[in-house]
Each structure stands twice: as structure tokens, then as C-alpha cells.
Design a protein around this nucleic acid. Sequence first.
DNA 1: ATGCTATTTGAGACCGGTCTCATTTGTCAA
DNA 2: TTGACAAATGAGACCGGTCTCAAATAGCAT
Lengths: 375, 375
Amino acid sequence: MNNRTVQKRLVTLQDVAREAGVSKATAARVLGSYGTASPEVKEKVLHAARILGYRPNELARSMTTGRSRTIGVVVGDIENPYFGQAVRGISEVASAAGFDVILANSGEVVGREQAAVQVLLGKRVDGLIITPASMFDIQHLEAVQRSGRPLVLLDRAIPKLKVDSVITDDQAAAAVATRMLIEAGHRRIAYITATASDDPIYRGPQQISLTTVMDRINGFLAASAAAGIKHPEQYIRLGASRQGASGRIIADLLSMPHRPTAILASDNVVGLEVFKVIRNLGMSIPADLSLIAFHDADWTSVTSPPITVISQPVYNLGVESAQILLERITGAVGTPKRLVLATELIERQSVGAPPAPQDDEKKVKSRPAAKAVVG
Amino acid sequence: MNNRTVQKRLVTLQDVAREAGVSKATAARVLGSYGTASPEVKEKVLHAARILGYRPNELARSMTTGRSRTIGVVVGDIENPYFGQAVRGISEVASAAGFDVILANSGEVVGREQAAVQVLLGKRVDGLIITPASMFDIQHLEAVQRSGRPLVLLDRAIPKLKVDSVITDDQAAAAVATRMLIEAGHRRIAYITATASDDPIYRGPQQISLTTVMDRINGFLAASAAAGIKHPEQYIRLGASRQGASGRIIADLLSMPHRPTAILASDNVVGLEVFKVIRNLGMSIPADLSLIAFHDADWTSVTSPPITVISQPVYNLGVESAQILLERITGAVGTPKRLVLATELIERQSVGAPPAPQDDEKKVKSRPAAKAVVG
DNA sequence: ATGCTATTTGAGACCGGTCTCATTTGTCAA
DNA sequence: TTGACAAATGAGACCGGTCTCAAATAGCAT
């Protein structure tokens, strides 16, 4: 009447104690391997537990101890292999230390991130690893800090928040990639990011809510400026999320009077979109257009031509963040760490010289210029 | 001394009650929105909860109610986008119903799967969705059933276990793909799977511990036999896991005196390996070798040539399994459902006629025969 | 035998909720 | 005014563990 579900009542410590003919406290000592107990009693309890199929109720245990041996992880998009790798890094470190992982997905939406944090906090996780969807909406993260639970940011930092974070050196990465394109002769380089925006045109830093994106844009702009390129920001485009908006953005970009001759794609999902659009437009890489993408995803080595990428140590991002979190959970104090991991440019074959000026018209069917194949 | 960690004691119901000047029971009624309470009291409690920043302790709640509103998911490999998609399907259904998801990774190792199940059971999840690593080691799954918690198998069935399962029609899929290759003229077709095995050569069903693999092999063999192909099993290879074993397996296969002229790859990871090896050997697809892969992964549409694949409704696999699980959790009874979702063959350009017999020698640089481009 | 310490064991409080039941207060009809 | 009944509230048991503390038992020296 009160509970019409089929759920059987599971075996409890009390049941084991009764079966073994000892008190609850004694059974607890044996099963929890703390305190003392005589060999005979030990044997009796263990035997009783075995035949009854006893499983301790971790909920009850966590409630008294106040620790759940669980860490909560909130990522932007589980389906993106980028996060998949990071999560694997986290899980491996966590389970090696006897911790479990609860995973939540924010879909890069602040509201869902907040909800996920509430849920995780409600479940009394011992700590959190989060890829924040925005560096501005951070009340919920401040609340985490106030609760005293350790928090580590993954992949993206939040300058205003004094908190451990593990990120990649995005500014340097973007600068290196940009410089490579410039050295190949490009002067009109587009930077395309998936970061949400109602306006695809870049008008200034205030539009950007992710440090990753900001840093990369800064690296891109700095490298461009250093090469004397005027108004490099005119080729920055935002909001190329996977919902297909990217197709139009890229096509628009390529139909500009002075279209870019090279594209820097902010992640592998955007990169894949760019690749598809280029192919559908009948343009060829790198003859008509050069391409560099962030994240060394599987597919980038297998296209024709294979894509030059910025390889990010994303598995290590996961490993490092989990290690820091675990240290904090076990009591480490001190000022927040800010770990910045280096990236690596992997040269493949998607970068070449820009097409000769008059080539701007004939976009289709041009054969690649003879060029040395690198890497 | 007892607890040297920084963790602050969080705000409890008792604190709120005290602050509002009411009893614990009254505060609980207001905050849990059950029972009755006068408007003034309601207001006082709500206000107190707000200023104190009260978050209910889900652990305590679960302990009394016996339900955690959490489902446990165990997948073989989080990093594989195949499972990534399935997990997204599960999460979306779950969170729409107010359930949370705890995700664990087995790495396709039975021992880790067992450990994961124990952990999840210990956390008193309301139900489990599992992609079992083996159809033979199932004591832990029987234990789940005995505990009365609902269990749904995803992607793979276990014939001996009376349990809900949601799988794809692997036998039909393999048969369709095989038939397509046969119709293109192939008689020597290899089937390469990642399933663990110390011996890469297929000697019989007893080596196979996954229904998926078994079904596909059966579909492959049946379609081959129907076409009068003798000893099709000689080209079946096992153990092409991502650890690089696949490279040797594929190379060995292609250096056989009567090498296969077509390959069926059991998942997209193997498919990618096969693609890379073929390219490294300087062979061309489909002129020298035809290829069909399971799972319509992103990259398959973007290679040259794009790969013909068997598209699996993996997101729906997740959705359906979560729905069934939720029904069971909310009390649905009845015989186990066995849901089999259809797959779809997506024709792209990796299938062609086999090379003429004398072509067996010249493996390099042959240009594709003129062929109609499908899809 | 006696006292003293060390070891083993049990009783019961506690964690933070839910929920039952009894008590108090209020409303309205007789 | 009194009784009946509904609404509001509080006291306290309970979930299944952990852990403190005291009591019981054992071992050993004197």
C-alpha cells in the first residue's frame, strides 16, 4: 500500500548480525574491517554475510561518514569525443583511488549546468569537475565553493573565480597555427568557433563567454597583428554550432568579395563541418583553401588530404584535473592551482599556399599546386 | 580530530526549522510540498530556507524513501562515439523524467563490469542499463535480478537471462551488407571484429562471447552460404582491438595467397583502422578492396572515398532502453521485452567490383574502375 | 584468590531526511 | 455553550549504516 514497487528489501547489517548471532556493532566491525573481533566471530559474520548476499548500503554509509567517495563531472557535450577522452582520464584516476564518477551533461547551456550542479550537490559528491558553459554566470559555482566542496575547472578557466583549473595553452596554440598559415603566405585567415552567439559576426570580447575562445581569438589576433595584417577580426565568425548554422556561416564567409584563403576551426566538430562544406562547394584543400582544426580527432588523419591539427592533451586534462581534485578532497590546502598544458601542432596536408589572386573566381575543380608533402 | 577535512556542515532541515521557528516535521512538509501548512508558516519556512541556502540531502531522502531517482549505466567504452550517442539518448530520457544517471566504464572487461555493478548497487540505483562484456559471465547480472532492481541490456542480449534488452538486428544487417558485396561480384569477403580473443582465427561459435558478434557472423555466413561461397569462415578475424593488433591482422589477411577482395568491419573503430592500413599499404578503395563498416560515424562520410556503412539507431537504442527501464522502475510488470531495432545500409562509395584476378599482384596505384557513384 | 590491564562485545546515539500518529487550534452547527 | 470535525502542527520512530562508550570477559602477575 505504501510502496507498490517490486523492490525487495535488501539484506542489511542487522540481518547479518542476527544470522550470525552477534550485535549490529560487532557485525559492522567485521564487515567494515575496523575495531577488533575474535577470529571465530569474524568467521561467523563473514559466513552469514556471504550466504545472505549482503551488500552494504553506500547511501547509509555516506550519510554517517559525510563522504560519498564520489566525484561529480559536468561536461558540455558527452557525445563530443573531446570530452569523451577527458572523461576517461577522470574515471581512470578516480577509480584507481576508489572513487566513483557521476557524469552530467550541460549541453553548453548554463541553466542545465546549474541544475546538474544542484543534483550533484544534493547527492553529496565529495568534489566537482566542471567545464563551465560561461565565465559570467557563475553564482552556482560560487555556491559550490561556499559549501566547502572542492571544485576543479576543466578546459576553461574563470578569471573571477579563485579555483583550481586545468586548461590548455589556447592562446599559444592559436598563435602557432596562425603563424603557420601566415608563413604559407595567407593574409586573409578566418577563425570559426562554435561558441553560442546570436550574431555570427565578431564585434568584440564582450560577446565571448569562454576563456578558451577568448584566448584563441587573442592568439589569432596577436599573431595576425605581428605580421602586419590589417583588421584580422573581420574574418572571425561565431555560433557555428552543430545545428547546421555552420553551413551558412562558412558559405557566407567564402562568398565574400575578398574571401579568406585559410580557415582555423575551433574544434573538431566545426572542423568536420568546414571540411564537408568545402567539399560540397567543390573547393579543394589546400589548393583553394587551407584548413587547420583544433583537436586531433580520429578522422582528421584519414581524410584526403589529412588535416593539420592542433593536438590537445585532453586525456591528460582529465587525469590532471582528477588528481588535483582528489588532493583537495583528501585535505590539501593552498592557493588555487592553474595548470596550463601545452598543445602540439601536427602538420599534415591541409595547409598550402593561398591561391593566386585571379584564382578567386574559379572556385571549382582547380588541381592542387605542386607542393612538398609534409609529415 | 575526527574529520580533518574542510567540508563544512551543510544546512539541514533542522536548521531551517529552527530559523523559521517551527518543528522539523512542519519544515519538511513545506519544503517537500506534501501534507498541509498555513500560508504564514509556509512563507516563514521558505524564507528561512532561502536565506540559509538550504539544499536537501538526497542521500538521506533516498534512504528513507528507498528510491534514489538514479539509474546506473555501464558501457564498454565511453570514448567510443557509438556509446556516446547511446548515453546521450539515455540521459535525455532520464533527466526528462527527473532521474539522474551514474555512468561507469567497463572497458569491455568482465571484472570491471562486475565491480561497476557492485558500486552502482551499493549506491542503490533504481535500475541499471548495461552493455554486457560477455554473455557467459553473468553471475553479477543474475544478482541484480535477484535484488529486484530492473535491468535492461543495451546493444547486446544474453539468451540465458530473462531480461529486457534493446538491440539492433545484427544478423540482418550483416546479411544485407554481405549480400551487397556478393552482388558487386565479391566471393572472398573478410569479416573483422574487435571482440577479444587470444587467437585471431575464427574456429567456431564457442570463441564468441557477444551476441552482437555472433549474430553478425551468422548473418555473414548465411548470406555467403546462400550465394554458394565455400568456407566463408576462413576470412573471419577476431581480436582487432584498438591496441594496434588490428594492423597486423589486416596486413596478414591481405597477404594471403587468395586474399579477400572485400572487408566487413564490425565497428567504426575497426573500420578506421582498416581504412588506415589499406591506405598505408598503398591499396585503393574500392578498386583494390571494398569496405563496409558498421556504425555511421562522422568520419565515414568524409573520407575519400566515403565509406558505405550500416547505420545503427544507437541514439534510439539509448532512448528505448531508458524508457523500458523507467517503466519497470515505476512498477511495470510482465515478461521481458526484447526490442530489436532495424539498421539501414547507407551506400556511399567504398564498394566496387573486385579487382580482376591477375590484379592480385599489383596492389599499388591502380585507379578506380569507372563506376556509377551511388548516394 | 585478587587486582589490573587488554581485548572483545553490545547498547544506543547519530546522520538528515520521511512519515505516522497524536495533540492543538479553529470553525461551525446544534 | 458545547460537541464534532477539519486543518495545522509537533513528537518521535525509522531507514542502515558508523562510532562512542561502557560492560563483560580473558589473561596474567602477585
